[in-house]
Each structure stands twice: as structure tokens, then as C-alpha cells.
């Protein structure tokens, strides 16, 4: 007798969460992120039918084809994925949206839409696969490249970077985190928490470009990021459907209750870091940047603020599938309007 297949809580096998074969470079950090996404959605037992994958243009934006093959995907235009994602969620508020962008797609051409997405606190998981360069056009600097970072050709970046996490906190995102494609444990925990969060999740994942930005002098190389990773806490995620108790010494961990009943357990690595303190979070990001380090982990969370769809106060059913009788007012309504115009 064959061993029963491994399934998740909704009875689906891991295979279901996979996508097409990647066409990105061997060793690309983006592939590691896709693997973590597959694991997170499988382990959270999310129905792929409910998920929409969105992206802009660039190496990062190709990756939605490589995970969750059973979900609808939309590879939109450069820097404009936030608006397409917004539209999809307006049409159907029950969808779970994950958007994959890059540092060029977000920080340069897409900064306008990024800014307004964050402001709206739209319930979407927005991931920046951040390698500090434009891979698909062969390695030009992007707006997240650090001051003084060097291209393969020796060109030195003389402009300061945009810190997408600081910007997201400033603008109103309610779940802001930074991670590293090489840190499987932290990234997986953050992704699961992202699925549980109701509101905008902004997750900047440093994801080295093995072809154009992995050399000496680059501040986004594997070696550099490993050396300068500055985790704020040890992140564990306890989903609502698992009955697990984790014991920490009093005062050594912070528990964050998520919207769906899940819990984020943050084992403190720094005594006074509190990710619900917006100003403290911004200060900590600036300090890390000044030291040339990447503060990773959950940087900021505000679990209870109303998301954009709640503010719009739309009916419970998806707008997309409301029947005609609910979206076309009756004859008497038109007559009333006409009477008012006579």
C-alpha cells in the first residue's frame, strides 16, 4: 500500500502550490523567495483558487509564474502593479493578493503607485525582491542601491538609497518587514504572518543578483548581506489552526495577536525594540543604515487599523458577481431622476 500523500489542512498536496519552471539565473535569490512562498501558502492551507498573483516588470516580476500555478496571475506593466492589484481587490474582496515587485519596479518607475498603495492600506502582500540593480537590462543601479556601492564595471553609486521600509512605515503600511532571501526561517515566518495580516504588508527581501551584483564592492552581494544582517528579533509564527504553546522567559518575547487569531512571537534580541512603535521603528531603521547594516525581521506592525476595503464599506459579496437586480436600480429610480431634471 502506497504511503498516503502529504497534505495540508485543506487536503492539498505541496505539488499544487508549485508553479512553472523558473527561467531566472541559477542561484538567483528570487528563486529562494518563490520556494518560501510555496511553503508558506501550503503550510497556511490557503486555497490557491482564492489567490491572485500580481507583478510589474523585471526579473522579480517574472517570478509569479514560478509559484502557485493554480492561481490566477497578472504580469502587468512596469511599476503599475499596485493599481491592477487594487482593482482586482475592489472587484472581489475575498481574494488574497500577493504582488511581486523589484527595487526598480517599485523605487523608480513605480514609486508613485507604491506610495499610494501604502497610504491606502490595501490588503495585499507586497514583496520587493530587492537586489539593488536592474537585472533584466543587465545590471544598472536601481534606487535602492547604497551610496558608494560599486557596479561590476567599477561605476560607483553616488546617490543615497530609498529605504522602502522606512517609506512604507511613513506612508501608513500596517505590516512592514525586511528579510534576506538566504534566511529561510525568518522569511517563512514573515510570509505566514503576512498571509494572516489584514492590511498592506510591505516585505522588502534582499535578494542578491548572482549575475550582476554579487561582487566585491557591492552592498547587495550574498557575502555582504550575510555579514551585515542585523535581525531585530527571532520571528516565530503560530497559526490560528495550530495549538502550540511556546514558552519564553518573562520579558524575553513579544506576542502580537493577528487579525485571524494567529500569533506572532517575537523573541527579543534587543531589549527595547517594539515593532508597534512607529517612531521607534523609523529610528531603528536609520540607525542600521548609518552603520551600513540591514535591520531585518518585523520592523513595524499595526494589526487593527481598518484596511481600504473596509473603509469603502462595500457589500459582503464580491462586487464582480453581484446579480443584475442588485446593480441596476429599478424603474422608479430612473423616473425619480428624470422628474428631478424637468
Amino acid at each position: 500500500m502506497a504511503t498516503p500523500a502529504k497534505v495540508n489542512r485543506i487536503g492539498l498536496e505541496p505539488q499544487v502550490y508549485k508553479g512553472g519552471k523558473t527561467t531566472l539565473c541559477a542561484g538567483c535569490g528570487h528563486n529562494a523567495i518563490s520556494e518560501r512562498i510555496i511553503e508558506a501558502f501550503y503550510e497556511m492551507g490557503v486555497d490557491p483558487q482564492r489567490v491572485v498573483k500580481l507583478s510589474g516588470i523585471g526579473c522579480s516580476s517574472k517570478s509569479p509564474a514560478y509559484f502557485l500555478g493554480g492561481s490566477h496571475g497578472f504580469n502587468a506593466v512596469h511599476g503599475r502593479m499596485p493599481s491592477v492589484g487594487t482593482g482586482a481587490l475592489l472587484a472581489n474582496k475575498h481574494l488574497l493578493a500577493i504582488g511581486i515587485s523589484g527595487d526598480g519596479d517599485t523605487g523608480a518607475i513605480g514609486i508613485g503607485q507604491f506610495v499610494h498603495l501604502m497610504r491606502r492600506n490595501l490588503p495585499i502582500i507586497y514583496i520587493i525582491e530587492d537586489n539593488g540593480c536592474y537585472g533584466l537590462t543587465k545590471g544598472q543601479f536601481s534606487p535602492t542601491a547604497d551610496l558608494g556601492s560599486k557596479l561590476k564595471t567599477g561605476v560607483v553609486n553616488d546617490l543615497p538609497p530609498i529605504d522602502t521600509c522606512a517609506l512604507a512605515i511613513e506612508l501608513g503600511a500596517t505590516f512592514v518587514a525586511r528579510s534576506f532571501s538566504g534566511d529561510k526561517k525568518q522569511l517563512l515566518a514573515l510570509l505566514k504572518a503576512a498571509i494572516a495580516h489584514r492590511g498592506t504588508v510591505m516585505l522588502d527581501v534582499i535578494s542578491p543578483c548572482v549575475t550582476f551584483n554579487d561582487h566585491e564592492g557591492s552592498t547587495k552581494s550574498y557575502a555582504y548581506v550575510k555579514d551585515h544582517d542585523d535581525p531585530l528579533e527571532e520571528v516565530s509564527f503560530i497559526p490560528f489552526f495550530e495549538d502550540i504553546n511556546v514558552d519564553y522567559l518573562p520579558g524575553s518575547a513579544q506576542e502580537v495577536a493577528m487579525h485571524d487569531g494567529s500569533k506572532l512571537m517575537l523573541k527579543k534580541l534587543e531589549e527595547d525594540y517594539d515593532p508597534t512603535d512607529r517612531i521607534g521603528a523609523l529610528r531603528r531603521l536609520h540607525e542600521a543604515a548609518r552603520r551600513g547594516e540591514f535591520a531585518t525581521g518585523l520592523i513595524y506592525i499595526e494589526p487593527d487599523r481598518d484596511d481600504f476595503l473596509t473603509l469603502l464599506n462595500v457589500v459582503d459579496e464580491p462586487l464582480a458577481t453581484l446579480p443584475l437586480e442588485r446593480v441596476r436600480p429599478g424603474k422608479e429610480a430612473l423616473e425619480e431622476i428624470m422628474e428631478g431634471l424637468r
Binding site: V52, L90, G112, V314, V315, D316
Partner: peptide
């Protein structure tokens, strides 16, 4: 319920306006 059978969003520009329309239409809305 007092809830709207519509969503109207003043977008950040015309690019985003059409992007939202495309996303919504793609997901089945008029």
C-alpha cells in the same frame, strides 16, 4: 445593510485609474 454595491476610488493619476479598471475588469467587475 447600508453597504455599497460599488467601489469608487479617486486614484493618484490617470495611469492608476486605468490600472484599477483593468484589474477590476480582469477580476470580473464592470
Amino acid at each position: 445593510t447600508g453597504k455599497a454595491t460599488f467601489a469608487i476610488v479617486q486614484a493618484e493619476d490617470e495611469i492608476a485609474s486605468l490600472g484599477m479598471v483593468i484589474g477590476a475588469s480582469w477580476a470580473g467587475a464592470r
